[in-house]
Write a protein that binds this DNA or RNA. Sequence first.
DNA 1: TATGGAATAATTGTCGACAGATTTCATGCT
DNA 2: AGCATGAAATCTGTCGACAATTATTCCATA
Lengths: 233, 233
Amino acid sequence: MLQPLGLVTTTIADEVFAKIRQAIVEGEIPSGSKLSEPEMATRYGISRGPLREALRRLESSNLVERRANFGARVVTLTFAGLIEIYQLREALEGMAARLAAECMTPAEIADLRALLARHRDQVAGDPSGAYFQKEGDLDFHFRIAQGSGNRRLIAMLCNDLYYVARMYRYQFGMAGDRSRAALDEHGLIVDAIAERDGELAEWLTRRHIRASRRHAERRLGAQPQPDESRGSP
Amino acid sequence: MLQPLGLVTTTIADEVFAKIRQAIVEGEIPSGSKLSEPEMATRYGISRGPLREALRRLESSNLVERRANFGARVVTLTFAGLIEIYQLREALEGMAARLAAECMTPAEIADLRALLARHRDQVAGDPSGAYFQKEGDLDFHFRIAQGSGNRRLIAMLCNDLYYVARMYRYQFGMAGDRSRAALDEHGLIVDAIAERDGELAEWLTRRHIRASRRHAERRLGAQPQPDESRGSP
DNA sequence: TATGGAATAATTGTCGACAGATTTCATGCT
DNA sequence: AGCATGAAATCTGTCGACAATTATTCCATA
């Protein structure tokens, strides 16, 4: 008998991959630590085969680094690495917003507005910004990416970059503040998408991510870099 | 004894990965064909272990698709997929050019100019555009990406996107023409980088890639899509 | 005491074999 | 004849073991 819809044949490597990814993102497995194959295999009660498969996927997600005959290590978080993420997000999410303004259906836009309203309520009810600590912010960006209709772009953002961004957020402890400003910026982006103004949506998104980057730079006590990536007025 | 420099410990999976990648890009292994593990293993004289490692890397390079308990297939090239590549390249290479204008050393810029001069000679000597058929064009883009200084961006472009772009170029047979126009556009981009004008470099690069996309659209006989991703003047 | 090197230990890369799942093909029924 | 059912065959996922490389430790020597 055929499965009616969505054949979700999950494998051991899949499950272990998801488990290790969560452990890395949330800091349970410390950044920079070595991932010994025999130790991890016994730790998760599996053989080394599927474990290596999981490690390989974590490598392609940019969460671990592997060297031949050396082993796998969790990536070390650096300020320069965080800047690289922001630069990529500015380029990719800017394009995603532009495409979303052209591709998203009215129903999807309505859903996006509803999500934004929920975020506003949560932030108003809890001024400490707990919702943003739970990645409500990335949830919004997630939807924009999916609205682009570009599967490759969606995969890059949702499967790779956002997990690394969450990892930095958890372990650098920069979550929660800037809630209201971010919410306002999100609102402007949704308006631009609703008006099918792709160019404005891209410009607003890039400015939004640049603002997040500058906020992180201030928060981490580093001197802000020269303002590359300024959109044209 | 320590290796003096550049520890190039290569593994079987590495070599087979490179071999299969080349075979896929150049069309020797047809697009959409199934990659049977036992057959491929005997074909390359190795076991299934390193072969699976190679297939995993090909998957993360977006050259093959894998499903659990189903197997690996070479990706099927579609017009929509080509458009997705162009959209990504516009966003990523635009950012790369902006960063290159800020980061490249004068020596690197001089090298880039020398490369461009060589390209001009080759195109002038062979009006059929043979050099561009040999990926001289992508060679230029390769250098811009590396000039960005963003390792993640470099990896995305040089390890993934450019191979897929070459695959489309080989198998859709759209290489060689547009040589002179592309050369002129390359020259403008180098000038902008030399003047440290990141914003102009990004704008020119995005326009350059949009022009390539429109050319491909015309060549493939499809109606050009609405001109999304138009830079602000 | 510090340094260089060799032997040991541990880890990764590779291989062959078994178990589970999927596809294919043959068979029987409507 | 066409379709559903079931069994054989093939393939992928998983496991344990061996080989090659690397890291570590210990000893000898300057």
